[in-house]
Write a protein that binds this DNA or RNA. Structure first.
Length: 430
DNA sequence: TGAAATGTTGGGGCG
DNA sequence: ACGCCCCAACATTTC
Protein backbone atom coordinates (compact mmCIF):
# COMPACT_ATOMS: atom_id res chain seq x y z
CA UNK A 1 0.00 0.00 0.00
CA UNK A 2 1.08 3.56 -0.76
CA UNK A 3 0.30 6.75 1.07
CA UNK A 4 -0.43 10.06 -0.60
CA UNK A 5 0.10 12.99 1.76
CA UNK A 6 -1.85 16.18 0.92
CA UNK A 7 -0.30 19.44 2.15
CA UNK A 8 -0.49 22.53 -0.02
CA UNK A 9 -2.10 20.81 -2.99
CA UNK A 10 -5.70 20.50 -1.84
CA UNK A 11 -7.26 19.25 -5.06
CA UNK A 12 -7.80 15.97 -6.90
CA UNK A 13 -7.29 17.41 -10.39
CA UNK A 14 -3.92 17.72 -12.11
CA UNK A 15 -2.03 16.90 -8.91
CA UNK A 16 1.47 15.65 -9.73
CA UNK A 17 2.21 13.65 -6.60
CA UNK A 18 -1.26 12.19 -6.40
CA UNK A 19 -1.06 11.14 -10.04
CA UNK A 20 2.25 9.33 -9.53
CA UNK A 21 0.95 7.67 -6.37
CA UNK A 22 -2.17 6.41 -8.11
CA UNK A 23 -0.50 5.38 -11.34
CA UNK A 24 0.30 1.75 -10.41
CA UNK A 25 -1.41 -1.44 -9.27
CA UNK A 26 -0.99 -0.60 -5.59
CA UNK A 27 -3.79 0.95 -3.59
CA UNK A 28 -3.28 4.39 -2.09
CA UNK A 29 -4.25 5.78 1.31
CA UNK A 30 -4.85 9.55 0.96
CA UNK A 31 -4.13 11.53 4.11
CA UNK A 32 -3.97 15.04 5.48
CA UNK A 33 -2.28 15.95 8.78
CA UNK A 34 -3.12 19.01 10.87
CA UNK A 35 0.19 19.99 12.42
CA UNK A 36 0.02 21.35 15.99
CA UNK A 37 3.44 22.94 15.52
CA UNK A 38 1.73 25.33 13.11
CA UNK A 39 -1.83 25.38 14.47
CA UNK A 40 -0.90 26.16 18.07
CA UNK A 41 0.20 29.63 16.98
CA UNK A 42 -3.15 30.48 15.39
CA UNK A 43 -6.42 31.82 16.82
CA UNK A 44 -9.26 29.30 16.98
CA UNK A 45 -11.19 31.08 14.24
CA UNK A 46 -8.24 31.37 11.85
CA UNK A 47 -9.67 31.83 8.36
CA UNK A 48 -6.96 29.80 6.66
CA UNK A 49 -7.62 26.77 8.81
CA UNK A 50 -11.31 27.11 7.93
CA UNK A 51 -10.41 27.32 4.26
CA UNK A 52 -8.19 24.25 4.45
CA UNK A 53 -10.96 22.37 6.19
CA UNK A 54 -13.49 23.47 3.59
CA UNK A 55 -11.19 22.18 0.85
CA UNK A 56 -10.73 18.88 2.66
CA UNK A 57 -14.50 18.58 2.77
CA UNK A 58 -14.66 19.28 -0.96
CA UNK A 59 -12.13 16.56 -1.61
CA UNK A 60 -14.06 14.24 0.67
CA UNK A 61 -17.28 14.93 -1.21
CA UNK A 62 -15.62 14.15 -4.54
CA UNK A 63 -14.05 10.97 -3.17
CA UNK A 64 -17.35 9.82 -1.77
CA UNK A 65 -18.75 10.08 -5.27
CA UNK A 66 -16.17 7.44 -6.17
CA UNK A 67 -16.96 5.42 -3.04
CA UNK A 68 -13.72 6.47 -1.34
CA UNK A 69 -12.59 8.75 1.45
CA UNK A 70 -9.79 10.85 2.82
CA UNK A 71 -8.13 10.28 6.22
CA UNK A 72 -7.53 13.40 8.31
CA UNK A 73 -5.22 13.29 11.31
CA UNK A 74 -3.81 15.70 13.84
CA UNK A 75 -0.30 15.46 15.21
CA UNK A 76 3.36 15.75 14.51
CA UNK A 77 3.92 14.28 11.03
CA UNK A 78 6.54 11.75 12.18
CA UNK A 79 4.21 10.47 14.90
CA UNK A 80 1.34 10.04 12.46
CA UNK A 81 3.57 8.19 10.00
CA UNK A 82 5.00 6.08 12.80
CA UNK A 83 1.49 4.87 13.57
CA UNK A 84 0.44 4.40 9.94
CA UNK A 85 3.45 2.29 9.02
CA UNK A 86 2.84 0.05 12.02
CA UNK A 87 -0.76 -0.52 11.04
CA UNK A 88 -0.34 -0.92 7.27
CA UNK A 89 2.05 -2.59 4.84
CA UNK A 90 3.29 0.70 3.43
CA UNK A 91 5.77 0.51 0.54
CA UNK A 92 6.06 4.18 -0.32
CA UNK A 93 4.87 7.64 0.58
CA UNK A 94 4.13 10.23 -2.11
CA UNK A 95 3.82 13.94 -1.60
CA UNK A 96 4.44 17.24 -3.37
CA UNK A 97 7.36 19.52 -2.60
CA UNK A 98 6.98 22.18 0.02
CA UNK A 99 9.91 24.58 -0.03
CA UNK A 100 9.51 26.55 3.20
CA UNK A 101 12.25 26.15 5.81
CA UNK A 102 9.90 24.60 8.40
CA UNK A 103 8.48 22.16 5.85
CA UNK A 104 11.94 21.15 4.72
CA UNK A 105 12.87 20.26 8.29
CA UNK A 106 9.63 18.35 8.82
CA UNK A 107 10.04 16.43 5.57
CA UNK A 108 13.61 15.53 6.39
CA UNK A 109 12.47 13.98 9.68
CA UNK A 110 9.74 12.03 7.88
CA UNK A 111 12.22 10.86 5.25
CA UNK A 112 14.58 9.57 7.94
CA UNK A 113 11.78 7.70 9.69
CA UNK A 114 10.62 6.10 6.44
CA UNK A 115 14.17 5.22 5.49
CA UNK A 116 14.58 3.27 8.74
CA UNK A 117 11.63 1.16 7.65
CA UNK A 118 12.84 0.83 4.05
CA UNK A 119 9.88 2.81 2.80
CA UNK A 120 10.56 5.14 -0.09
CA UNK A 121 9.61 8.81 0.10
CA UNK A 122 8.76 10.17 -3.34
CA UNK A 123 8.33 13.89 -3.63
CA UNK A 124 7.15 15.75 -6.71
CA UNK A 125 7.19 19.23 -8.11
CA UNK A 126 3.63 20.49 -8.21
CA UNK A 127 3.14 24.03 -6.96
CA UNK A 128 5.51 25.72 -9.41
CA UNK A 129 6.40 25.55 -13.08
CA UNK A 130 10.12 25.74 -12.33
CA UNK A 131 11.69 25.09 -8.96
CA UNK A 132 15.02 25.93 -7.34
CA UNK A 133 17.61 24.30 -9.64
CA UNK A 134 15.66 24.56 -12.89
CA UNK A 135 16.25 28.26 -13.49
CA UNK A 136 19.83 29.17 -12.63
CA UNK A 137 22.74 31.02 -14.17
CA UNK A 138 24.95 28.94 -16.41
CA UNK A 139 27.30 28.14 -13.50
CA UNK A 140 24.37 26.77 -11.49
CA UNK A 141 24.19 29.67 -9.06
CA UNK A 142 20.81 31.25 -8.35
CA UNK A 143 19.59 34.45 -9.94
CA UNK A 144 19.18 37.25 -7.43
CA UNK A 145 17.84 39.81 -9.90
CA UNK A 146 14.34 39.44 -11.26
CA UNK A 147 14.73 40.50 -14.89
CA UNK A 148 17.38 37.97 -15.97
CA UNK A 149 15.57 35.32 -13.93
CA UNK A 150 12.32 35.99 -15.76
CA UNK A 151 14.10 35.98 -19.11
CA UNK A 152 15.53 32.55 -18.43
CA UNK A 153 12.18 31.36 -17.06
CA UNK A 154 10.42 32.36 -20.27
CA UNK A 155 13.12 30.75 -22.43
CA UNK A 156 12.70 27.46 -20.60
CA UNK A 157 8.94 27.77 -20.67
CA UNK A 158 8.95 28.26 -24.43
CA UNK A 159 11.20 25.25 -24.89
CA UNK A 160 8.93 22.81 -23.13
CA UNK A 161 5.38 21.73 -23.66
CA UNK A 162 3.18 21.68 -20.62
CA UNK A 163 2.34 18.31 -19.09
CA UNK A 164 -0.77 17.77 -17.00
CA UNK A 165 -1.26 14.99 -14.48
CA UNK A 166 -4.82 13.63 -14.68
CA UNK A 167 -4.87 12.32 -11.12
CA UNK A 168 -8.65 12.72 -10.99
CA UNK A 169 -9.03 9.84 -13.47
CA UNK A 170 -7.31 7.29 -11.25
CA UNK A 171 -9.41 7.52 -8.11
CA UNK A 172 -10.35 3.82 -8.27
CA UNK A 173 -6.85 3.11 -6.88
CA UNK A 174 -7.72 4.76 -3.59
CA UNK A 175 -7.77 2.34 -0.66
CA UNK A 176 -10.79 1.45 1.42
CA UNK A 177 -9.99 2.22 5.06
CA UNK A 178 -11.54 3.12 8.38
CA UNK A 179 -9.35 6.05 9.41
CA UNK A 180 -11.11 9.15 10.73
CA UNK A 181 -11.89 12.46 9.09
CA UNK A 182 -11.31 14.86 11.98
CA UNK A 183 -13.64 17.85 12.17
CA UNK A 184 -12.65 21.45 12.82
CA UNK A 185 -13.91 21.11 16.38
CA UNK A 186 -11.79 17.97 16.85
CA UNK A 187 -8.66 20.03 16.25
CA UNK A 188 -9.88 22.91 18.43
CA UNK A 189 -10.94 25.35 15.72
CA UNK A 190 -14.11 27.16 14.71
CA UNK A 191 -15.40 28.24 11.33
CA UNK A 192 -14.20 31.73 10.50
CA UNK A 193 -16.60 34.42 9.34
CA UNK A 194 -13.89 35.49 6.86
CA UNK A 195 -14.15 33.61 3.58
CA UNK A 196 -11.59 33.22 0.82
CA UNK A 197 -12.80 35.12 -2.25
CA UNK A 198 -13.22 33.25 -5.51
CA UNK A 199 -10.57 33.86 -8.10
CA UNK A 200 -11.12 35.58 -11.42
CA UNK A 201 -8.92 34.74 -14.38
CA UNK A 202 -11.28 35.85 -17.12
CA UNK A 203 -9.82 36.85 -20.49
CA UNK A 204 -10.87 40.38 -19.75
CA UNK A 205 -8.98 40.53 -16.47
CA UNK A 206 -5.73 39.21 -17.91
CA UNK A 207 -5.95 41.31 -21.05
CA UNK A 208 -6.48 44.50 -19.03
CA UNK A 209 -4.30 43.49 -16.12
CA UNK A 210 -1.50 45.95 -16.75
CA UNK A 211 -3.91 48.89 -16.92
CA UNK A 212 -6.24 48.01 -14.06
CA UNK A 213 -4.19 46.11 -11.50
CA UNK A 214 -2.90 49.20 -9.72
CA UNK A 215 -6.28 50.71 -8.91
CA UNK A 216 -7.65 49.20 -5.72
CA UNK A 217 -11.17 50.48 -6.34
CA UNK A 218 -11.30 48.34 -9.49
CA UNK A 219 -11.58 44.58 -9.28
CA UNK A 220 -8.51 44.35 -11.47
CA UNK A 221 -6.64 41.61 -9.63
CA UNK A 222 -7.24 37.88 -9.80
CA UNK A 223 -7.53 36.82 -6.13
CA UNK A 224 -5.58 33.74 -7.13
CA UNK A 225 -2.97 33.99 -4.42
CA UNK A 226 -4.80 32.04 -1.71
CA UNK A 227 -5.75 29.35 -4.17
CA UNK A 228 -2.17 29.01 -5.34
CA UNK A 229 -1.02 28.97 -1.73
CA UNK A 230 -3.20 26.00 -0.83
CA UNK A 231 -3.12 24.35 -4.22
CA UNK A 232 -6.84 24.53 -4.86
CA UNK A 233 -5.94 25.28 -8.46
CA UNK A 234 -3.12 23.94 -10.63
CA UNK A 235 -0.32 26.40 -11.45
CA UNK A 236 0.06 24.66 -14.82
CA UNK A 237 -3.47 25.57 -15.76
CA UNK A 238 -2.98 29.20 -14.71
CA UNK A 239 0.40 29.68 -16.39
CA UNK A 240 -0.90 28.19 -19.62
CA UNK A 241 -3.81 30.60 -19.59
CA UNK A 242 -1.61 33.61 -18.77
CA UNK A 243 0.77 32.75 -21.61
CA UNK A 244 -2.00 32.98 -24.20
CA UNK A 245 -2.01 36.76 -23.91
CA UNK A 246 0.46 38.98 -25.73
CA UNK A 247 0.75 41.22 -22.68
CA UNK A 248 2.83 39.27 -20.19
CA UNK A 249 2.17 41.37 -17.10
CA UNK A 250 0.05 38.68 -15.50
CA UNK A 251 2.51 35.91 -16.37
CA UNK A 252 5.26 38.03 -14.85
CA UNK A 253 3.46 38.04 -11.52
CA UNK A 254 3.46 34.24 -11.57
CA UNK A 255 7.19 34.39 -12.29
CA UNK A 256 7.76 36.74 -9.34
CA UNK A 257 6.16 34.08 -7.16
CA UNK A 258 8.65 31.47 -8.34
CA UNK A 259 11.51 33.96 -8.18
CA UNK A 260 10.89 34.51 -4.48
CA UNK A 261 10.40 30.79 -3.88
CA UNK A 262 13.82 29.97 -5.26
CA UNK A 263 15.31 32.86 -3.29
CA UNK A 264 13.87 31.39 -0.09
CA UNK A 265 15.21 27.97 -1.06
CA UNK A 266 18.76 29.19 -1.55
CA UNK A 267 18.71 31.83 1.19
CA UNK A 268 16.46 30.42 3.94
CA UNK A 269 18.08 32.70 6.52
CA UNK A 270 16.29 35.66 4.88
CA UNK A 271 13.12 34.79 6.79
CA UNK A 272 14.64 36.79 9.64
CA UNK A 273 17.84 38.35 8.33
CA UNK A 274 18.26 40.95 5.65
CA UNK A 275 19.46 39.62 2.32
CA UNK A 276 21.80 42.61 2.22
CA UNK A 277 23.45 42.29 5.64
CA UNK A 278 24.33 45.98 5.96
CA UNK A 279 20.61 46.71 6.25
CA UNK A 280 20.57 44.92 9.59
CA UNK A 281 22.59 47.85 10.93
CA UNK A 282 19.57 50.15 10.57
CA UNK A 283 18.58 51.61 13.92
CA UNK A 284 14.83 51.08 13.78
CA UNK A 285 12.70 53.21 16.07
CA UNK A 286 10.31 50.31 16.65
CA UNK A 287 7.79 52.45 18.49
CA UNK A 288 5.11 50.09 19.80
CA UNK A 289 2.41 52.70 19.89
CA UNK A 290 3.04 53.71 16.28
CA UNK A 291 3.05 50.05 15.29
CA UNK A 292 -0.31 49.54 16.99
CA UNK A 293 -1.79 52.52 15.12
CA UNK A 294 -0.45 51.15 11.86
CA UNK A 295 -1.99 47.74 12.60
CA UNK A 296 -5.36 49.28 13.38
CA UNK A 297 -5.40 51.66 10.41
CA UNK A 298 -5.20 54.84 12.48
CA UNK A 299 -2.08 56.56 11.17
CA UNK A 300 -3.95 59.54 9.74
CA UNK A 301 -2.72 58.68 6.24
CA UNK A 302 -5.86 57.55 4.40
CA UNK A 303 -4.30 55.17 1.89
CA UNK A 304 -2.34 53.40 4.61
CA UNK A 305 -5.32 53.20 6.95
CA UNK A 306 -7.71 51.97 4.27
CA UNK A 307 -5.31 49.17 3.41
CA UNK A 308 -4.83 48.02 6.98
CA UNK A 309 -8.56 48.11 7.62
CA UNK A 310 -9.18 46.07 4.49
CA UNK A 311 -6.62 43.54 5.72
CA UNK A 312 -8.12 43.34 9.20
CA UNK A 313 -11.65 42.96 7.89
CA UNK A 314 -11.11 40.59 4.98
CA UNK A 315 -7.70 38.93 5.28
CA UNK A 316 -6.83 40.48 1.95
CA UNK A 317 -5.19 43.68 0.75
CA UNK A 318 -4.78 45.00 -2.77
CA UNK A 319 -1.19 44.66 -3.95
CA UNK A 320 -0.64 48.35 -4.68
CA UNK A 321 -1.78 49.13 -1.16
CA UNK A 322 0.52 46.46 0.31
CA UNK A 323 3.45 48.37 -1.16
CA UNK A 324 2.19 51.63 0.32
CA UNK A 325 1.60 50.33 3.85
CA UNK A 326 4.91 48.46 3.82
CA UNK A 327 6.88 51.48 2.66
CA UNK A 328 5.11 53.57 5.30
CA UNK A 329 5.90 51.17 8.14
CA UNK A 330 9.57 50.80 7.27
CA UNK A 331 10.36 54.28 6.07
CA UNK A 332 7.96 56.74 7.66
CA UNK A 333 7.67 54.95 11.00
CA UNK A 334 11.13 53.34 10.93
CA UNK A 335 9.74 50.05 12.17
CA UNK A 336 11.60 46.85 11.37
CA UNK A 337 10.23 45.04 8.29
CA UNK A 338 10.05 41.83 10.35
CA UNK A 339 7.28 43.36 12.47
CA UNK A 340 5.26 44.03 9.36
CA UNK A 341 6.05 40.63 7.94
CA UNK A 342 4.85 38.97 11.13
CA UNK A 343 1.62 40.95 11.15
CA UNK A 344 0.90 40.08 7.53
CA UNK A 345 1.62 36.44 8.36
CA UNK A 346 -1.09 36.53 11.00
CA UNK A 347 -3.67 38.25 8.84
CA UNK A 348 -3.22 37.39 5.17
CA UNK A 349 -5.31 34.55 3.80
CA UNK A 350 -2.79 34.24 1.00
CA UNK A 351 0.22 34.30 3.31
CA UNK A 352 3.09 32.74 1.45
CA UNK A 353 6.39 32.93 3.29
CA UNK A 354 8.55 33.33 0.19
CA UNK A 355 6.48 36.16 -1.29
CA UNK A 356 5.82 37.86 2.01
CA UNK A 357 9.43 37.90 3.16
CA UNK A 358 10.63 38.76 -0.34
CA UNK A 359 8.24 41.65 -0.76
CA UNK A 360 8.77 43.04 2.75
CA UNK A 361 12.50 43.02 2.17
CA UNK A 362 11.83 44.65 -1.18
CA UNK A 363 9.92 47.45 0.56
CA UNK A 364 12.55 47.86 3.27
CA UNK A 365 15.28 47.96 0.62
CA UNK A 366 17.12 45.08 2.23
CA UNK A 367 16.17 42.31 -0.19
CA UNK A 368 17.15 40.91 -3.55
CA UNK A 369 16.52 43.35 -6.38
CA UNK A 370 14.94 45.66 -3.81
CA UNK A 371 13.66 49.18 -3.99
CA UNK A 372 16.62 51.53 -3.33
CA UNK A 373 16.53 52.91 0.19
CA UNK A 374 15.86 56.45 -0.98
CA UNK A 375 12.71 55.43 -2.85
CA UNK A 376 10.09 56.53 -0.37
CA UNK A 377 6.43 56.38 -1.33
CA UNK A 378 4.51 59.54 -0.61
CA UNK A 379 1.19 58.18 0.69
CA UNK A 380 -0.60 61.32 -0.47
CA UNK A 381 0.88 61.33 -3.98
CA UNK A 382 -0.13 57.68 -4.24
CA UNK A 383 -3.77 58.69 -3.70
CA UNK A 384 -3.57 61.10 -6.63
CA UNK A 385 -2.19 58.37 -8.85
CA UNK A 386 -4.19 55.33 -7.81
CA UNK A 387 -7.34 56.38 -5.96
CA UNK A 388 -7.90 59.96 -7.02
CA UNK A 389 -11.66 59.85 -6.51
CA UNK A 390 -11.17 58.26 -3.05
CA UNK A 391 -13.51 55.42 -3.93
CA UNK A 392 -11.36 52.74 -2.30
CA UNK A 393 -10.34 54.88 0.65
CA UNK A 394 -13.90 55.93 1.52
CA UNK A 395 -15.04 52.34 1.44
CA UNK A 396 -12.75 51.57 4.36
CA UNK A 397 -12.71 54.97 6.07
CA UNK A 398 -16.29 56.22 6.18
CA UNK A 399 -15.30 58.89 8.73
CA UNK A 400 -12.76 60.45 6.37
CA UNK A 401 -12.91 64.24 6.58
CA UNK A 402 -14.66 64.30 9.96
CA UNK A 403 -13.24 65.03 13.39
CA UNK A 404 -13.14 61.35 14.29
CA UNK A 405 -10.50 60.60 11.66
CA UNK A 406 -7.04 60.89 13.27
CA UNK A 407 -4.42 63.50 12.46
CA UNK A 408 -1.27 62.17 10.74
CA UNK A 409 0.95 60.50 13.35
CA UNK A 410 4.06 61.72 11.53
CA UNK A 411 4.81 64.64 9.24
CA UNK A 412 5.65 63.34 5.79
CA UNK A 413 8.58 65.65 5.08
CA UNK A 414 10.15 65.18 8.49
CA UNK A 415 9.67 61.41 8.41
CA UNK A 416 11.19 61.22 4.96
CA UNK A 417 14.27 63.17 5.99
CA UNK A 418 14.67 61.14 9.17
CA UNK A 419 14.42 57.94 7.14
CA UNK A 420 17.11 59.01 4.68
CA UNK A 421 19.36 60.00 7.57
CA UNK A 422 18.81 56.70 9.42
CA UNK A 423 19.36 54.51 6.37
CA UNK A 424 22.41 56.49 5.32
CA UNK A 425 23.93 56.11 8.75
CA UNK A 426 23.54 52.33 8.63
CA UNK A 427 24.79 51.96 5.07
CA UNK A 428 27.78 54.27 5.58
CA UNK A 429 29.12 51.89 8.23
CA UNK A 430 29.94 49.28 5.63
C1' DT B 1 7.04 48.62 -8.72
C1' DG B 2 8.96 57.10 -6.41
C1' DA B 3 9.40 61.57 -5.19
C1' DA B 4 11.89 65.80 -4.16
C1' DA B 5 15.23 68.96 -5.53
C1' DT B 6 17.36 71.25 -8.96
C1' DG B 7 18.01 72.76 -13.69
C1' DT B 8 16.26 74.39 -18.22
C1' DT B 9 13.16 76.44 -21.35
C1' DG B 10 9.93 79.51 -23.15
C1' DG B 11 5.80 82.42 -23.05
C1' DG B 12 3.81 86.50 -21.24
C1' DG B 13 3.60 90.75 -18.45
C1' DC B 14 5.72 94.84 -17.96
C1' DG B 15 8.74 98.93 -17.93
C1' DA C 1 11.55 95.82 -30.06
C1' DC C 2 14.12 94.79 -25.98
C1' DG C 3 15.55 93.19 -21.42
C1' DC C 4 14.06 91.60 -17.29
C1' DC C 5 11.37 88.93 -14.24
C1' DC C 6 8.13 85.45 -13.06
C1' DC C 7 6.63 81.04 -13.30
C1' DA C 8 4.61 77.00 -15.33
C1' DA C 9 6.01 73.00 -17.64
C1' DC C 10 9.15 69.77 -18.50
C1' DA C 11 13.82 67.42 -17.90
C1' DT C 12 17.49 65.85 -15.13
C1' DT C 13 19.67 64.80 -10.96
C1' DT C 14 19.59 63.40 -6.39
C1' DC C 15 18.02 61.02 -2.41
Amino acid sequence: MRIFWFRRDLRLEDNTGLYHALNSDEEVLPIFIFDPNILSQLPENDARVSFIYQQLENIQKQLKGAGKKLAVFSGDATNVFGKLIQENPITSVYTNHDYEPYARKRDKAVFQLLQQHSISFKTCKDQVIFEKDEITKSDGSPYVVYTPYSKKWKEEWNKKSIVHYPSEKLLDKIAVHSYPFLSLADIGFKTSEIKVPNFNISDNLIANYEETRNFPAIKGTSFLSTHLRFGTISIRKIAQKADQFSNKTFLNELIWREFFMQILWYFPHTINQSFKPQYDAIEWKNNKNAFQLWCEGKTGYPFVDAGMRELNATGHMHNRVRMIVASFLCKHLLIDWRWGETYFAQKLLDYEQASNVGNWQWAAGSGVDAAPYFRIFNPTEQIKKFDSDLQYIKKWIPELGTDSYPQPIVDHKEAREKCLETYKKALDKS
